[in-house]
Every structure is written in C-alpha cells, then in structure tokens.
Design a protein around this nucleic acid. Structure first.
Lengths: 192, 192
DNA sequence: CTCGGTTGTCTAGCGATGCTAGAATCGAGG
DNA sequence: CCTCGATTCTAGCATCGCTAGACAACCGAG
C-alpha cells in the first residue's frame, strides 16, 4: 500500500500548500485578493483542484482560522509562562494577544471576523478553537475574582481585547494610545 | 429657479431612498445580498443612477453608517437621560448600545465592521461619528476614575462593548449569558 | 509488456458581481 | 414647436465562486 500512502502524503502536502498560500496572499493583499483563480495559479494547479480539498472558499478561510487558533494559543502560553506576578502575567497575555492580532491581520480576521463555517462555544467546536479559549482561561481564570465564573470572566476579557484589536486596526481608535488602553483594561478587569 | 429647486429636492429624496433601501435590504438578507442590481431594481431605477449619487457600493455603506451613528447617539442619550444613579446609568448605556447592535445588525456592521470609506478619530471625521463618540463620552467620562483620561476610558469601554456585541452576534460567546457579562463589565470598568 | 479501468486534472463555461461607455430619451427655454 | 443640454437606460467589460464533462496519467491484471 505504499503507493497509496505516497499519494495520500502528497495530497496532504498540497492541502497544506493551499492553506499556507491562501494565508500568505491574504496577509499580503487582504482576503478580497484571495480569489480561487489567483490561489490556483499560485499553487500551480487549476481551480477545480481547490474544490477537491475544500467545499469552497469559506472552508479555506476556516482552515486558516484553525491554524491561527493554534498559533494564538501557543503565543499566549509562551508569553505567560514563567511570569510569576499575576498582574504582569495578565499584561503579558494581553500584549501577546494584541500583538498576534496586529502581526497576523488576515489570520486573525479568518478566526474572529470572517465566516469560516466553524462552530464556536458548543460541543462540536474544533479542538484548536477550544484550546485557544483554554489558553486564555488558564491565565485569566485566576484573576476572575471571588464569585465570578472563570469562563464568563474570560469571555468578557477576551471580548474587550477583541474590541481593542479590531477597532484600533481599522483606525477607529486614536493611534498611539494602545499601551495605556491595555494597562487600563488589565488594571480594571483583573482582580489581583 | 424653482425648477432647479424641485429637481434638487427630488434628487435628495431619491438619495434618501437609496440609502434607506440599501439598509432595509441589508437588514433583511445581509450586506452580501445588497448588490447594485437588486438595489437598483428596488428603487425602480437602473444601476447607473446609483453611481450618480455615490462613487460605489462602499459609499452607500458609508451613508448607512452615518445614519446609524446618529441613531446610536440618540439611543444612548435617551437611555441614560434621567437616570440619576451612576451605576444604573452606565448599565443603561451598555444595554442600549448592545441592544442597538443586536436590533440593527446591518447598520451596526456598516458603522463598525465594514469599510464605508469613513475617517475615524481624526480631524476630518464626519460629525455624526464624532457625535456618537461624544454621546458615549458624556456618560462614561464621569466614571473614568481619578487620573484617567475620559477619552481613553471611553475608548476602552466602547471597545469592550464592541467586542461583546460582535462576538456574541457571530455565535462566538456562550448564548444566554449576555446580561451577566454586561454587569461584570460595568462593575469592573466603571469607577463609581 | 500491454491493455483496461480508475483516478485525477484540466478546459471551458454558467450565472452573478461592481462598474462604465455610449445610445436614447426627456424636458426646459427660446 | 424645436433645439439642445441634462438625465437615464441599454448593453457590455472584467472578474467572481463554482461545476460539468472532456481528457490524461497511472495502477494492477493478464
């Protein structure tokens, strides 16, 4: 069965290529520039090949979103690991989150702005998404404060970060005040 | 010159019709369904007429956004007016904001999610947008706390509301917990 | 080593999109 | 009533996501 194995490997490899290329193109020129034609041309296959891997453009966005979720979880854990002081830990988490959103605009959009056909906050939510939330929960849960559900607190904190990330990126907040906004948010929300 | 006056009136009236129809269509079937053809058909003119009023679809979205900004300001002021207790006032503001976002999904998207070609947070920002922010600032500025810039505080509070509004609408937060999230946010952010 | 059949890929095309050029029509002023 | 400028429409362009059907490549059997 080594022949079929090889084919399967090549197929998986091509799927990674599609996702990576879509993400790269989106990061360079925005998601609007990610058309099936351009994407097909970049991977040096014809358009129908894309549809043998994904149901459509939406699913490709979803694949990028899952990739981004995993990376975001890694980034958040890396930033908080080893930081003893609770406040500094939450600050590090917030910074890492906003940094990820700023450095991976297209991937972040795929994850939290666009419709990638993914289910959130339910039983059948894909593992990377659950893990992304879990990464936030690990550090935020312990500063939720007495009598406040850690999950609920994490949702609120996350939503605030998300608002800051999206509004500042689209130029709807005063540029340059990102750091004081972050500090204010942490100092008010977290119970130390 | 009464002839030209009449023409100008009719032209302005038609422009209002375009914006209202676009918004209605977006609210009913989403912005993706607002195509120049469908919009033209609904106002009973041909497509090129749209382009004699707006540069393109983006500008139509921008017009809806300005309309939404005005209404949001009105809603926020109406909800907070006459509420004496500071906490209840901020709660009323938050509720009114989230309520507006939930009841006017398409308009809210035009305002804060889509690109309507509008400038935010700068000198040449259109008046309705400035006024929308001002409406928030009026009630939020007084609970910013000592030593905290009211504008900065308002940005943070607004961003948090925006995050809650968008994430919950796209099903990324647990449904049903909207109220406790709101209360938690208010009690933590506002200095009473 | 050849052949048949499956698997995979491509060419070509459909309906729809935003937008525009140029024809056609309307209406005001003489 | 006629002319001419302003207004509106018809028709079309390039591009979009997606798919049907033709074609080619390759594997296993004889």
């Amino acid at each position: 069965m080594s022949v079929q194995d090889r084919k399967q490997r090549e197929r998986a490899e091509r799927e990674r290529l599609i996702v990576a290329t879509a993400r790269e193109l989106a990061e360079q020129q925005g998601w609007d520039a990610v058309t099936t034609r351009r994407l097909a041309e970049r991977i040096e296959y014809s358009q129908p090949v894309l549809y043998s891997h994904f149901r459509g453009k939406r699913e490709i966005i979803g694949a990028v979103a899952l990739e981004a979720a995993g990376e975001l979880a890694v980034a958040v854990r890396a930033a908080t690991a080893g930081v003893e002081d609770p406040r500094e830990r939450v600050v590090a988490l917030a910074r890492a989150y906003l940094d990820f959103a700023a450095r991976n605009v297209a991937a972040y959009d795929a994850l939290f702005q666009l419709d990638g056909g993914l289910a959130f906050a339910v039983e059948e939510t894909p593992e990377p998404l659950k893990d992304g939330f879990a990464a936030l929960l690990e550090s935020l849960g312990e500063v939720a404060g007495d009598g406040v559900d850690p999950g609920l607190f994490t949702e609120v904190f996350w939503a605030s970060l998300h608002g800051l990330a999206t509004l500042s990126r689209t130029g709807r907040l005063l540029p340059g005040d990102a750091e004081p906004r972050l500090e204010l948010l942490v100092d008010r929300l977290a119970v130390l």
